[in-house]
């Protein structure tokens, strides 16, 4: 009797578990995949030859073939009328301007064959840069490569390095126009807030610090538009304390050692000067472990803006 009861119960539990697994397995898989990377970017290539419609109106007939030089096209969303830079191996290479709807397209013809790390970055109205959108690409002769759907991250700034508890902190920046900005605020717990950008892509969020305990906070933001998401902006730190402290650009951007608002070869060179040397200045020891080593360069590479 007792064994039969246990047997029936175990069958029921197993059955329920099986149904649960079959129902929820796809959901678990999708959420894991979504977490890994942004899938909106499209990479396509035309190899060898393209068919050319000689009549030019799609009327058919009379088509021919034309060879394609190794070329590359980048297109996507930046900020309205913002300058867009293409970096080749971390250095500025080509510049263009996004239109008033924030759309941009860069065509680089006749590119030499090889391996290149291309990055796309834009600049807001305050000359602050987005994070890099990076593609290590193998460029092959006679292949026209197109990378579309690039969605550049918004910029982010805070109104002070230290804000007095109870006062309002302004979190602002620029992103795609008429988009939703999701702001992440992290201390011991992580909170999310959202705000919309206006037609010029600007956004402002007023954070009432009275609801938060004293301590160090990190914030970053991303744009969401028509079911597409940009990567996160760079990470900005601030503290909620007992007094207000407004700081300039210097110190608010991690790894911007010379405080010019950029993280590039200059900051790399300053860091390289202190590599493996004793008693480095506090501001070059990015991970604050008392020395400048490859870990500090990793932080610099993460924050690189060109």
């Amino acid at each position: 009797m007792k064994n039969g009861f246990i047997e029936r119960q175990s069958h029921r539990v197993f059955g329920l578990f099986l149904i649960f697994s079959i129902l929820f397995l796809p959901i678990l898989k999708i959420s894991a995949d979504e977490f890994v990377e942004i899938e909106d970017v499209s990479i396509s290539a035309i190899v060898g030859f393209i068919e050319v419609d000689e009549e030019g109106d799609g009327g058919g007939g009379g088509g021919g073939f034309s060879s394609v030089p190794a070329s590359i096209t980048f297109s996507g969303i930046a900020y309205p009328n913002s300058p867009v830079f293409v970096l080749k191996n971390g250095q500025e290479f080509v510049q263009t301007l996004a239109n008033q709807n924030a759309l941009f397209s860069v065509y680089i013809p006749s590119f030499p064959q090889g391996t290149y790390t291309f990055s796309v970055v834009t600049e807001d109205v305050n000359s602050k840069r987005s994070t890099l959108f990076t593609f290590p690409l193998s460029i092959v002769e006679n292949v026209a490569t197109t990378i579309s759907g690039i969605f550049l991250s918004p910029t982010i700034s805070v109104s002070g390095q230290v804000i007095k508890k109870g006062n309002s902190m302004i979190i602002s920046g620029q992103g795609a126009p008429n988009a939703t900005i999701s702001i992440s605020l992290k201390s011991t717990l992580q909170d999310f807030f959202s705000v919309d950008t206006n037609q010029t892509g600007l956004y402002y969020y007023t954070l009432d610090t009275g609801f938060f305990p004293l301590g160090l906070y990190q914030t970053k933001s991303k744009s969401i538009k028509e079911e597409s998401e940009s990567p996160f902006s760079s990470l900005i730190s601030f503290s909620i304390g007992n007094t207000d402290e407004v700081d300039g650009v210097c110190g608010s951007i991690r790894a911007d050692i010379n405080c010019d608002g950029r993280i590039n070869l200059i900051d790399f060179s300053i860091l390289a000067f202190w590599y493996k040397k004793n008693n480095p200045p506090e501001k070059v020891d990015l991970n604050m472990d008392g020395r400048v080593d490859i870990r500090d360069f990793s932080i610099l590479a993460y924050e690189w803006t060109g």
Binding site: I43, A45, T115, T117, V140, T145, I147, A301, G306
Partner: peptide, 11 residues
């Protein structure tokens, strides 16, 4: 700079 997660073969 910007990270590397694999060399993209566009073809």
């Amino acid at each position: 700079a910007g990270g590397f997660s694999g060399l993209i073969d566009p073809v």
